[in-house]
């Protein structure tokens, strides 16, 4: 056997460096992803700035659209917003203000946008967080079982349902659920509250108030979960189907593993990897769902804030929520990419 070991040495020429190599290339992966996220963020800032200041012609005019103003008022307005300065100067000021958390003032509420955002953040976080968690677990499970029993009754049923949910505007589903479960349909009484976050007489800081809020959030959470899980389920199903064609699963079966073990140890963990990436890329739809669902259920979160700002239009609020939503998605994406990097050795090493 010793001669064989020696022979093995001769073919080991293109062997990847082991000690320093992995860490270095993971570092590069990490740096690339962080730089990419920063690029996206800068891009969002540029879009946010120029869209409102450059596109519609005179910003002062568009910022005061719909209101009659005198020339003096316009000039004062320009000066107040620094619009009389060169564009580059304005952009730098904008960057500086944004970095300091100054996102402007809401016309409607006449308070700083950042305060509004902090105020309205929690219902959104609760709604989106719980729904995403539930949807991920249920969606991934459904996709997994579908792929495993491809073409069978469960697969047809589950894929049919998820495709329909996927083709459905989530807020329309919400409207139907309100009509059916909150208002009641025909002889059936309604069960859930039709909207809002609290009952009128509830004290939001007490335990019963919190339970009341949770009760108010139940139907919105169900709606969003159904909307999100379609996406996750379809992604997981196709990732796992890709994986099931791979030869290493035959190896695993040949070793004497039960089908269940082949699935649990090899196919599913490997299929979850591409699912992470794809789910991260599609994270934007989570934000869309928050806006529309908060709107129809009148949940006083960031989504409803943006919706209310639309009709006025309350530009600073729109810009602030856009920036926040984009930032959140970019960060979520970065985190997903980093998790992927940790989980998949092909990236890490």
């Amino acid at each position: 056997m010793t001669t064989l070991a020696a022979a093995a040495g001769t073919e080991a020429a293109p062997e990847p460096a082991e000690a320093s190599g992995p860490r270095r290339s993971f570092g590069r992966y990490l740096a690339g992803k962080v730089l990419g996220a920063l690029g996206s963020l800068l891009f969002v800032l540029v879009v946010n700035f120029f869209l409102f200041r450059v596109l519609p012609g005179d910003p002062a005019r568009s910022l005061t659209r719909g209101r009659v103003v005198s020339k003096e008022q316009m000039d004062a307005f320009r000066e107040q917003y620094g619009l009389d300065q060169p564009l580059a100067q304005q952009f730098l000021t904008y960057l500086k203000n944004t970095a300091q958390g100054d996102l402007g003032v809401s016309i409607r509420y006449n308070v700083p946008v950042s305060e509004l955002i902090v105020d309205r953040m929690w219902p959104t976080i609760a709604l989106v967080g719980v729904s995403t968690l539930l949807a991920t677990v249920i969606g991934v499970y459904l996709g997994m079982v579908s792929a495993w029993r491809r073409g069978g009754g469960f697969d047809r049923f589950s894929t049919g349902i998820t495709l329909t949910l996927y083709s459905m505007p989530e807020w329309w589903l919400g409207l139907l659920l309100i009509a059916g479960l909150s208002v009641g349909f025909g002889p059936l009484p309604g069960i859930f509250p039709t909207g809002g976050l609290n009952s009128i007489d509830a004290d939001p800081s007490s335990l019963s108030g919190m339970l009341d809020s949770a009760w108010h959030l139940t139907l919105p959470v169900i709606t969003l979960t159904l909307a999100y899980l379609a996406e996750y389920s379809l992604i997981m199903r196709s990732s796992l189907l890709d994986e099931l064609g791979e030869n290493y699963l035959t190896t695993a079966r040949a070793k004497g593993l039960r089908d269940v073990e082949v699935r649990r140890r090899h196919a599913v963990p490997n299929a979850l990897l591409p699912t992470t990436t794809l789910a991260a890329l599609n994270i934007g739809f989570v934000v869309s769902g928050a806006i529309t669902i908060e709107t129809i259920f009148s949940i006083p979160g960031l989504g409803l804030l943006s919706y209310e700002a639309l009709s006025i239009p309350d530009y600073d609020v729109l810009q602030g929520t856009f920036l926040l939503a984009s930032g959140a998605v970019i960060v979520a994406n970065l985190v997903a990419n980093l998790i992927y990097g940790v989980l998949d050795p092909r990236v890490r090493t």
């Binding site: 996206s40 879009v47 890329l281 739809f285 934000v287 869309s288 239009p313 998605v329």
Partner: peptide, 14 residues
């Protein structure tokens, strides 16, 4: 990575 709906909203408003 820019979320669709918020971007579409500000574009549509503008």
């Amino acid at each position: 990575v820019i979320p669709f709906l918020p971007l579409a909203i500000i574009l549509a408003v503008v």
